[in-house]
Computed example of a mutant assay.
Amino acid sequence: MTDTTNTSADLAEFEAEFAAQLALAPEAQDLLFRSARTANTFTDEPVSDEQLRAIYELIKYAPTAANSQPLRIVFLRSAEAKERLLPLLGEGNRAKTSAAPLVAILAADTDFHDELPKVFPHAGAAYREMYAGNDDARIGSARLSAALQVGYFILGVRAAGLAAGPMGGFDADAVSREFFPDGKHQALVIVNIGKPGENAYFERNPRLSFDEVASFI
Rank of each mutant, 00 (worst) to 15 (best):
F202M: 11
F153D: 00
L116H: 00
A28K: 12
L11A: 12
F153I: 04
V191Y: 13
F18K: 01
T41P: 03
I139W: 02
T97N: 03
N199R: 13
A147T: 14
D136G: 05
T97P: 05
G90C: 02
A65S: 15
E212R: 03
A108Q: 06
V157C: 11
S145A: 12
A16E: 13
S176R: 01
I193E: 08
H122K: 15
P196H: 11
L22C: 11
Q149P: 02
G161V: 04
K82L: 11
A81K: 11
F120P: 00
K195P: 02
T2R: 14
A107W: 08
E50V: 05
R158T: 03
A104M: 13
I190T: 01
N6D: 13
A146M: 09
M1G: 13
A159C: 04
D182E: 15
E129H: 08
I217L: 06
R77C: 03
V213K: 04
G194W: 09
E115I: 10
K82D: 11
L85K: 02
G151F: 10
D211P: 00
E83N: 14
A99H: 15
D30L: 12
V191P: 12
F153S: 01
L85F: 07
A146E: 03
I139C: 03
F170R: 04
R77I: 02
G140L: 09
T38W: 03
A20W: 00
E91T: 08
A160G: 13
I193Q: 06
T97S: 10
K96N: 07
A25Q: 12
S176P: 00
A20Y: 00
L188C: 03
I105C: 10
A16C: 03
S209R: 14
L208A: 03
I73M: 13
S48K: 11
E80G: 06
A81M: 14
Y56Q: 09
A54I: 01
R37G: 01
G151C: 08
G165Q: 11
A107E: 05
K82E: 12
E129A: 14
D10T: 12
A12S: 13
P46N: 07
Y152Q: 07
F179C: 09
P101D: 10
Q21R: 14
Y56D: 09
V74K: 15
L22N: 12
A107L: 10
L208K: 12
F180S: 03
R94N: 05
F153W: 15
N6W: 07
P181E: 05
R128T: 08
S98Q: 15
P196E: 12
F170S: 03
G140Y: 04
P181W: 09
T64C: 01
I73P: 04
A28W: 09
V150E: 13
G90H: 05
F75I: 04
F202T: 05
